[in-house]
Design a protein around this nucleic acid. Structure first.
Lengths: 207, 207
DNA sequence: ATCTTTCTGTTGCAATTGCAACTTTTTAAA
DNA sequence: TTTAAAAAGTTGCAATTGCAACAGAAAGAT
């Protein structure tokens, strides 16, 4: 994507303390503990944001892909549990300091301006992601959650047919519902003729 | 807040097409139809983001307060229903054009830099809001939703006691659960000694 | 090519939730 | 200050969901 591309091209000339690091699969990229000044951007690869609660239960809070922006700065201060970002493939990550973006650079340097614009773009994309998820999660039944999510995917692809960006197991996590209950409801939707499904390709049959 | 304050102070000097408008209670501030270039900031007052679905049902999607940033740019493109922002009190709203923020100003003018920095801050605050809601909504039971939300409010206030920022009716909407079911669960939490409640002031009694 | 792990698909059952339908209390408006 | 409109509080009941516990299929690893 040109956004991040511009940014990388400008790192050399920058007056900011920007680092780029490489991670192999299953490494800890960062933990959300007293790093509210750190903002991260995935240049390539994928990672999971994982919560370990007090009982040691593991829970995938978010999934990050190429060009996604993340960091403790995006999260409420929360003392009860620990958030950790772990690479799910090999990946390259850019680490920026929030203050370097926020505080106005006295020289009005080109790097700062590029940085601000790019990060605004990435942050907006992030907001769209989040609002999509909120719209889906705020539906009360599994059926409505599925249909809402499908409808958004359909709008995005301009087509009644689309491929799920997840495994069904991960879809259940995304919708925050029990997997078996979701499977049951998917079956109902198929039996009642609302959708058809082969593998993780879905087709909407209504309207 | 100093963020928005800085911004307003700089409007006069700006090269950008910024408008400030006043609305009385119950006016339509904007609709999310083909305004993906429009970004709005509430200077003061409050507003609701409302969805009208195909059956004409009304649903409060989000609530905005002073210094909140919003606009179609934050939402997925979605053909099925209409989103409208309506003032719930008298309010003043700043209208910016996304392109004016995104596209680099050739003169590196002071206004542009202030704008970018401020909007990044507001956008980050917005992300924290959204992630809070996602964390709460992704809990599977009403009990967990309540306790998670309470725990976040408690962390924010550095206290086991805090005041709900909503009426109970609006809290049920925020948690996306049936109000009567939520009341039942609140009562259970009180009876089992997890919390105490008087009016909309909550006290956590555990740990 | 075999083994191991992850994912898909199912089902019974108990627990939770939403819905509908009320009453009472509080707040706002005329 | 009376009236109207929200909000809070309750309850029975039916529907949905989560949980547990499987078996089979697919994908990765050795």
């Amino acid at each position: 994507m040109s956004d991040t591309f511009d940014l990388i091209n400008n790192i050399q000339s920058g007056c900011s303390r920007v680092q780029k690091k490489h991670f192999v699969k299953n490494e800890t990229i960062t933990t959300y503990i007293q790093k509210r000044n750190q903002i991260c951007i995935i240049i390539n690869g994928t990672a999971d944001l994982i919560r370990y609660d007090l009982n040691g239960n593991k829970d995938i809070v978010d999934k990050f892909n190429e060009n996604d922006i993340f960091g403790e700065a995006f999260y409420p201060v929360h003392t009860n549990n620990e958030l950790t970002v772990i690479s799910t493939t090999d990946c390259d990550v850019l680490f920026l300091l929030h203050d370097d973006i926020y505080k106005k650079c006295k020289q009005n340097c080109k790097f700062h301006n590029t940085l601000s614009s790019n990060i605004l773009e990435l942050t907006l994309k992030n907001a769209i992601h989040q609002n999509t998820r909120i719209e889906v999660l705020s539906k009360r039944t599994i059926r409505e959650k599925l249909l809402t999510y499908f409808s958004i995917l359909s709008s995005k692809d301009f087509s009644k047919s689309f491929t799920l960006p997840f495994t069904l197991t991960n879809l259940a996590d995304y919708l925050s519902v029990d997997r078996s209950a979701m499977m049951r409801e998917l079956k109902n939707l198929i039996d009642e003729g609302f959708i058809s499904k082969s593998g993780n390709r879905i087709k909407l049959l209504y309207k």
